[in-house]
Design a protein around this nucleic acid. Sequence first.
DNA 1: CACCATGTTCCTTG
DNA 2: CCAAGGAACATGGT
Length: 286
Amino acid sequence: MPELPEVEVLVRHLRPALEGETIRRVDIRRGKVIQPTSRGALSRVLAGAKFKSLSRRGKYLLFELQSAGRRQEIRLLGHLGMTGRMYVAGRREALPKHAAVVLELGRGRFVYEDTRYFGRLTLDLSALEKLGPEPLSREFSPRGFAASLKRSQQAVKVKLLDQAVVAGIGNIYASEALFRARIHPGRRSNTLTFEEVMRLHRAIRAVLTEAINCGSTIPLNFSGGKDGGRLFYFGLKDGAGDFYEERLRVYDRAGAPCGKCKTPVQRFVQAARSTFYCPRCQPVAR
DNA sequence: CACCATGTTCCTTG
DNA sequence: CCAAGGAACATGGT
């Protein structure tokens, strides 16, 4: 579930659970997720370090810590890939099958699990340099957005997945934003009128903001006794499926009637990924 | 067994 | 050099 809104919600929940906590032990169970950092380097740097702050950039989580000797600032970059989860759990809780990195804290433990191991938790921050503007900030302007789109003949839906154009949009919200903006996903980026670009710009912000306000696409599942919000992970609660379907207008709804016009939602493949849209609300031309 | 999956990077082709 | 398309990564669900 990790696109910008899910990561934002995750950061907000992790922040109070992590800030001020000191790392007592580092357990790297799957070396792949920390590369290019080495196990030795990560363990050495994190042991005894204290979490100072947590923020988000695109779909990345940025953890800032202070080293054991308070000599240096440490910046850790996290990414959930397709199946990553991060949460603070009780110490006696069993670790999940695909726990990738576990950080023992004062009371609980920070767990990064990732079934497919596509995510990252690393000291290498270079990925941040390639990111385009934050969609919910003022650096994301209609003019700049229009300029990026003008330079490409790629289908606009594929372009929205390009993190250098705007940071944080993934396959779900790309379809959702285009539906909201009433733009066909196959339109070549450089053929959009400025009016359409502005509509898309607004739609992106609206869709992401709504998702954040909603908690996330899939409701967060809190568990645990008195620890309350400290125990946190993504997961489906009972009845969450209905909620999920109500929130998304076209994504994963092929064949279902469009909420606006009842025309069946269509699915097709672009850049090897599924795209969903309403052929009536999002015509190729108007 | 076949196909699909929220993401990113690398390789190839033009 | 650039743009665009596709495979690869690794595991699980249907």
